[in-house]
Design a protein around this nucleic acid. Structure first.
Lengths: 148, 148
DNA sequence: ATTGTCACTTGCAAAATGCAAGTAAATTAT
DNA sequence: ATAATTTACTTGCATTTTGCAAGTGACAAT
């Protein structure tokens, strides 16, 4: 499944984003890292949306190829640790805009459980994103702090 | 191809966004409306990324079902006019974050041709989005004003 | 009346996805 | 040391989605 298709359909900025991370499963991986502090293949597999094993592997590979993720070895040599590069961390403001939108339009959104965070995003996405980027860079998940 | 699958995989705000508009082709339709002022099936079909006719039709239908687009009749009875609902207009800040990210990381990004806009997004996405939302609501495309 | 335009639909081959069942390497248990 | 477990994948195959090419039916222009 080598997808060495270095040929973008266009360099329209929207299209570039779509090709880099705009796949359903790819974005869920990023979510798992940012919101749930996940870092290993096995942890991603457990996500409620249900990754197929091969799809998860191909998306991780793709995100690494795009420079959004990096893979390192775990202290437990069986595991790999996936983490966001700077390019990946810079997607956090975008993910937050998505959360804001869903919080507004999905009446059953689980965003209701992080209203403190949603409110901060609404006030100043840039500012809260910067703070969260630093947390995630340190390997922390962000959920707990903003619960309620 | 009735995709009456009212069952979201989850109400995670990221997942909700993905299911609503997070499809490659769906977002390109939104881009065409916002940045290029397109409004008809035929105009979308001409996009550089190359829509397949059936995919375009199914995505338009999906976006309408999600309440992101609305269809009206054109004065020329053969044509339909597609436009963003308020829910759709509210996606503009998100699209702008995407543009910002791509402008930063795609060295060949066409965002370079709208650096004025990119700079405004960086300074205050909320503010410029509000302005653009009003333009798009009036049926104007936004490109020309921010060219250079 | 005829021809052209427009928004689709249909049929079918090719590609992507989703399971289930491996496999190989590293760790843990005995 | 050996066996059993855990982890990160791969592989095979059925199902689904995509991408063309070629219609079709409603309206418009001539």
């Amino acid at each position: 499944m080598k997808k060495e298709k270095n040929k973008l359909r266009s360099h329209c900025p929207v299209n570039y984003g779509l090709e880099a991370f705009g796949d359903r499963w790819a974005l869920l991986i990023l979510r798992d890292i940012v919101f749930r502090g996940k870092r290993t293949y096995g942890e991603f597999l457990k996500s409620e949306e249900g990754f197929a094993t091969n799809i998860l592997a191909s998306r991780l590979e793709h995100l690494i190829a795009e420079g959004i993720l990096q893979r390192e070895v775990h202290e437990d040599g069986r595991k790999d640790v996936y983490s966001l590069t700077e390019k990946g961390l810079d997607l956090i403001p975008l993910i937050f805009e998505m959360v804001l939108w869903s919080a507004k339009y999905d009446s059953r959104s689980e965003a209701k459980r992080i209203m403190r965070l949603v409110e901060l995003i609404r006030k100043d996405n840039r500012k809260i994103s910067q703070k969260v980027i630093e947390q995630v860079r340190r390997g922390e998940g962000i959920v707990t702090e903003y619960l309620l």
